[in-house]
């Protein structure tokens, strides 16, 4: 009963819009009052591919999102572990400070950071964009990873230490496999947030770092929903590709001597 409810709700709220979006991208614009027609057209996708910067933008979007994700995971895992397993003075203060970027208007952060980026010579570069994408993502990642480490508990890691394992070995054999659910959540969040950034990318990238949103947003003004649907479909596929890339990397890092990541999903 519960299972069927889950599947029907996911079908209605997740699958159906996706299917409609894809259908929309291959059917012409429908005007109010017109009879329903199912004429097939590739015009939306042609417009999408017409812009010769599109493949470069797709590649750059994924590159920036993945770079931001790996930096996020590094910061998130280290600070999440410290916040979860260590006790130190001012812990709750630091925890709050780490969340603060979320309460700051993005524009305010971007304009302030822009000057620093120019000084550092990172303005108008893709790596500068990666760095600025950390602002709206790192707080979430830290939260998610802290929750992951809370669930893991310190005992499991102490047990591994007692059996004589070194920190890196413990990370590969115990932490990473058991934290995969949290890592997946963090990756999804980071990739999606990074790919949705227009203002931050435009300000720090200064128009020379062309990601998908930079090409995509101007089309929002048009009423051509066939083209819009094509863009949106391509856009929705990007996070899936990025998450797949992270999965592959994590599989490589995990110790290969033991067959891992069974039992728990």
């Amino acid at each position: 009963m519960k299972k069927s409810l889950f599947y029907s709700l996911s079908a209605i709220f997740f699958l159906l819009p996706g299917v409609l979006l894809m259908l929309k991208s291959v059917t012409p614009v429908w005007k109010w009052g017109e009879a329903f027609s199912f004429t097939f057209t590739l015009r939306g996708w042609e417009t999408f591919l017409m812009d010769d910067r599109i493949f470069h933008a797709l590649f750059l979007s994924i590159l920036i999102a993945l770079a931001a994700t790996f930096i996020n995971l590094a910061i998130g895992m280290i600070s999440g572990k410290a916040l979860s397993h260590q006790n130190f003075k001012g812990k709750s203060l630091i925890e709050t400070l780490l969340l603060l970027p979320l309460f700051l208007p993005v524009m305010a952060a971007a304009l302030g950071l822009h000057i620093t980026m120019i000084r550092l010579g990172l303005a108008n570069t893709w790596f500068g964009v990666v760095l600025v994408h950390l602002v709206p993502t790192v707080p979430y990642t830290i939260k998610v990873m802290k929750a992951g480490y809370d669930r893991l508990g310190g005992g499991m890691l102490e047990q591994a230490q007692m059996l004589g394992a070194k920190p890196l070995y413990i990370f590969r054999t115990v932490e990473l496999p058991l934290l995969m659910p949290s890592i997946r959540s963090a990756v999804f969040l980071t990739v999606t947030i990074s790919m949705s950034q227009y203002v931050l990318t435009a300000v720090i990238g200064g128009g020379s770092v062309i990601t998908l949103p930079i090409i995509y947003y101007p089309f929002l003004q048009s009423v051509d929903d066939t083209v819009m649907a094509a863009f949106s479909t391509a856009f929705a596929l990007l996070p899936i590709i990025a998450v797949g890339a992270v999965e592959i990397v994590s599989k490589l890092i995990r110790a290969n001597g033991l067959v891992l990541n069974r039992g728990v999903k």
């Binding site: 004589g164 115990v174 067959v259 039992g263 728990v264």
Partner: peptide, 16 residues
């Protein structure tokens, strides 16, 4: 370790 079988658990330290 919940993601390892009983045998893999038992030999975790020995594998090192």
């Amino acid at each position: 370790f919940p993601h390892l079988t009983i045998l893999e658990n038992v030999i975790y330290g020995l594998r090192l």
